[in-house]
Write a protein that binds this DNA or RNA. Structure first.
Lengths: 211, 211
DNA sequence: GTCTATACGATGATAGAC
DNA sequence: GTCTATCATCGTATAGAC
């Protein structure tokens, strides 16, 4: 390998350009030019433009999902140990916190979240299928534990409420800095911890809503 | 005009193909072929592919926003007349109900919602800007009335909660039939009235969540 | 194995004849 | 208003240099 970091450079540049300019609007020529590699390098190393995006996602999603799964199981085991229902707030904290942590500039994944937000929205795309294959076990587990935590709410109802919660979260991920409407007297530039707590309060109240 | 309904046919076909196949994946050649018009007709009548989508959106969004704005003002005026705060449930019913009504096959706009969901997700796109310009007054008004209905919650907090609510709603719009994960014992094919009520319960609980 | 140069078909857009 | 012809650019594929 004369250029040992060609793949790495492609992943980094693609993540940034896809996130800032959009997947479809970003050409392979723009990526390979910015990464200072040949155009054909993408197809050689990854196979296609879609496969490149898939690799960009997998690189971050893999470790992230391990963390979320671990923290989810910790909450589940604590519930078993204490012989009680899983703690709802702990459950959703385990799911939300590691995700929003990526918004911190120090994480090195500042562009990743808005990228995921885009993919999550592309209902018809193949990318969605790829993403879901990675996420499906986590979603299933989160749903089951939420059902255990809220035995009073019908599964059917909880399914849709979890669906709504995912919607809020993905919408937040997508709105990196640009928030649709900024009314007077509102500062949209709040820190991550504050937003995380607001999302948690909102989501928990929704999940526990009276029937 | 030898073909007086060329524009109309283009709008109808484009709405259907954009919604089912995705905006980027649908070529102008596929649209003009299905509509049985010449390829250049799109650029003649609308100017560009993006402008065509904009026209498709505006055709439905205009009347819909008039309805939503009217119903919002009805709630506001009732509050003034009774000298009380606006009713929160009535407020969000006015916003959500006319929208989800479009999911009914009889509405003739069955493809529209998933199209809007796509646009709402394309954070970086020009389409988003177009959409927001149409929606911004409605969002502003909904936010202000929500603030009036919940004077105990800080504007800053309510801003984000409204943001989360919009996220749930757009996520629901996007998932026309295809829901990411279907756990056991859950029927995802519920009727619109039931889903509307579940979304309302969820959203209201979130907006009113304790601090 | 890795990179380069080059070519192919399809796309969105446009100019000009009718 | 409608059509044909043509353009630059896109994602992709491949042959050949190192």
């Amino acid at each position: 390998m004369s250029q040992p970091d060609t793949k790495q450079r492609l992943l980094d540049v693609a993540e940034r350009l896809f996130a800032t300019g959009g997947f479809h609007a970003t050409s392979l020529r723009a990526i390979t030019c910015a990464a200072e590699v040949n155009l054909a390098a993408v197809n050689y190393h990854f196979g296609s433009k879609e496969a490149l995006l898939e690799a960009v996602m997998a690189r971050r999603l893999g470790p992230l999902n391990v963390i979320r799964q671990d923290r989810l199981e910790q909450v589940a085991q604590r519930a078993v140990a204490e012989g009680e229902k899983p703690d709802l707030r702990a459950l959703w904290t385990a799911f939300i916190t590691p995700t929003l942590e990526l918004r911190r500039p120090e994480s090195g994944a500042e562009y990743f979240l808005s990228l995921i937000g885009q993919v999550l929205a592309d209902t018809n795309g193949v990318l969605m299928q790829v993403f879901l294959r990675q996420m499906s076990p986590l979603f299933q587990r989160l749903f089951e534990l939420t059902c255990q935590a809220l035995p009073g709410v019908p599964r059917q109802t909880l399914f849709w409420r979890v669906h709504f919660a995912i919607g809020s979260m993905s919408h937040l991920m997508r709105s990196n800095d640009r928030v649709p409407v900024k009314p007077e007297g509102v500062d949209t530039d709040v820190d991550i911890d504050a937003i995380t707590e607001m999302l948690l309060d909102y989501t928990l109240a929704g999940l526990e809503a009276p029937l």
